[in-house]
């Protein structure tokens, strides 16, 4: 599920950018698309297949980036891919796992503290790095690993990137992002409290179901999607000109890309597994 929030944010951003803007020239060229995509895909193949050991995992991220860029250009054209470049990069936020463990721990610690303060009348206790509530004298514990700190941080990263994409590097982007992160934080705290309340009211079985991370992830993804979709809505133009949405025919390219992805994936699988192992 770590891809859910970035994918949803990317989808919301793309949905708001499917149609070209008023100031975007309607100039396209399949030869330019083909040449750029060929360059990107050859780079990806070189990085993933030819780069030597000992540390092949180093090449996975640039290789994935080059493949993603090449595939996007080939499938939707250079201009459209450029318009959606940040949206397409969002899933990589999750893939790269750039959030350090210390930050995740600190976030979970903050979440525990806030939930303990806000839920004090009901009684969740922050003890020994876990949140504990009770149901008929039996203790129900939400450990640090069960808290959605990483999902919150991923969502925050997506909101920051999306705000930059939609509003540009301006103060308004920072303001909107700060507000959105506050909303996301409130929803995250609310979700944790809801899990604890479910356990307190309905017992251990309901508590086990409610603490599945997927539920919180879906909730946070929904919040991110709504916020990004609201930002992405373009302001009505005074005198819109006829803008031709450009989508090249790329069925052959799609088949080729899937085959290439499978082949390169198989080739780089051992390195990816090593990376996952190292992350653990």
């Amino acid at each position: 599920m770590p891809l859910l929030i970035p994918l949803v944010a990317a989808a919301a951003l793309i949905a708001g950018r499917v149609r070209p803007g008023q100031d975007e020239p309607d100039v396209h060229d399949r030869q330019v698309d083909g040449l750029l995509a060929a360059g990107c895909l050859v780079s990806a193949a070189t990085l993933l297949l030819l780069m030597p050991s000992p540390d092949r995992t180093t090449w996975l991220l640039p290789g994935a980036l080059a493949y993603l860029a090449g595939a996007a250009i080939l499938l939707v054209g250079t201009r459209t891919a450029a318009r959606m470049r940040w949206a397409l990069l969002l899933p990589l936020v999750a893939i790269t796992g750039v959030i350090p463990a210390a930050v995740v721990d600190a976030t979970n610690g903050a979440l525990r503290a806030v939930v303990a303060v806000l839920g004090r009348p009901g009684g969740p206790v922050d003890a020994g790095g876990a949140l504990t509530t009770t149901y008929r004298q039996s203790a129900l514990t939400l450990t640090s690993a069960d808290l959605p700190g990483i999902a919150f941080l991923g969502g925050t990263a997506c909101l920051l990137v999306s705000a930059l994409v939609v509003f540009g590097p301006r103060t308004v982007a920072l303001r909107r992002a700060a507000l959105a992160v506050a909303v996301l934080g409130a929803v995250t705290v609310g979700a944790v409290m809801a899990v604890l309340l479910t356990g307190r009211l309905l017992g251990p079985t309901a508590f086990r179901v409610a603490e599945y991370p997927v539920l919180t992830d879906v909730l946070l993804a929904l919040v991110v999607m709504i916020l990004v979709a609201r930002w992405s809505r373009r302001a009505p133009q005074p005198a819109p000109r006829t803008v031709r949405p450009y989508l090249p025919r790329a069925r052959f390219a799609l088949v080729t890309l899937v085959v290439a992805a499978v082949l390169m994936g198989l080739e780089s699988l051992p390195a990816a597994l090593a990376l996952t192992e190292a992350a653990r």
């Binding site: 020239p25 100039v27 396209h28 060229d29 030869q31 330019v32 250079t78 201009r79």
Partner: peptide, 11 residues
Amino acid sequence: SDFINWIKQRS
């Protein structure tokens, strides 16, 4: 002023 337009002209 446009990347694709420039490439077309220069090519």
